[in-house]
Structure formats: C-alpha cells, structure tokens
Amino acid sequence: MFELLKFGGSAEAGIALETRQRTPIPNSQAPNVSSASLRKFQRLLQDHRDWRLRKPACGLYNCYGHIWASRRTAIYDQPAVELILREDGYRRLRPQESPINGDVVLYYVDAQYNSMLHVGSVCELRRLPLNNVEMGALLPWILSKWDDSSGEVLHHVNDVPWQDGEFTIAFWTDRV
C-alpha cells in the first residue's frame, strides 16, 4: 500500500548524539519544510496572536532536538527522551519549587504523565498584572518549536495548540 513512500522516500539518517553517560540517543534529521507545513504554521501564528516569532519554519529538528540536540536533529521516540532525562540528571520540580530560566517544561497527554506531547525551554518569567493595584504571580514564557517543520515561537506556558483538558505540564530541571 505504501510503495510510493518506500521507494520515493529518503532513508532516516541521524547524527552522533549521546547522553552525558555516553549512551547513544536515536535520532533522525528531519527533511525540508513542505508548502503544506508552511501554511499550517502560518495558521497557528494567526490563531495565537500573543505568540512571538523567533525563527521561521524550518526542518532538521523538532522540539526534543531543539532542547537536547542543539537544533541539529529530531528525536521522535519517547524512550529516548526518558533516557535523556535519566542520564542527563534531570528531575521534576517539586510542587513548591518555581521554574527559572533554562528549566524545561514537558507537556503530557494526561495527568498521569505517561505520554509526552512536547518540550520547551523556560526563557522568561513575567509578572502579569492582576488588577490595577496588585500584581499577579510570575508566569513562565516558553521557547518552543512545535514539530519538525514549524518555526520557533515564544509563548505563555498555557498558550499552546492543544485545548484545555488535553494536556498537563510538568517542569523539569538539571539543577541539583
């Protein structure tokens, strides 16, 4: 059924990538962005007016490659991400802990933190005005590349492509 893809596609090819403990990390460099992917990213930008574009749509890396492979390649397998978290010394922030710049936020499908949707890096903490007198809590702003064919955007931690109830977040850090 997929002969066209089998014979017309280009074989996955990764780069040398290892955890801090030198375990290889499976990866594959993403292809060029298609016109359909460009249109999809444009629609996303139009739907999220508060996003700030850092970089136009590009291939090569996805969100995990953005955070853990220096924008050189894409990582598509959750076990590989879990390997990185484990062997690079990441821990989930405790409930009373606040994230700071450089920490990462992982988005999950459910509250059990089983399946990962996305990762982004905390790049700013903004104190949003609550009303004219009081100031609200510090809220993280995130740098994200949504997939292997989108661009990079800055966005509020809850201003994402998924609806409320479709995701749960957890902050992780490699701080001791």
Partner: peptide, 22 residues
C-alpha cells in the same frame, strides 16, 4: 484543521498515539 493543528504539533509516537486514541 481541528485535528491537524493539535496532532501535527506532537513530536513523539507515544504521545501522538495516545492523543489520537482519545
């Protein structure tokens, strides 16, 4: 688009399968 936008913003197979199955 209501399926494309959230689904194509997911980067791991495990997350995509779990998301789609709901």
């Amino acid at each position: 688009q209501s399926l494309e936008t959230p689904s194509s913003s997911i980067s791991t197979a495990e997350g995509l399968r779990d998301f789609l199955s709901r």
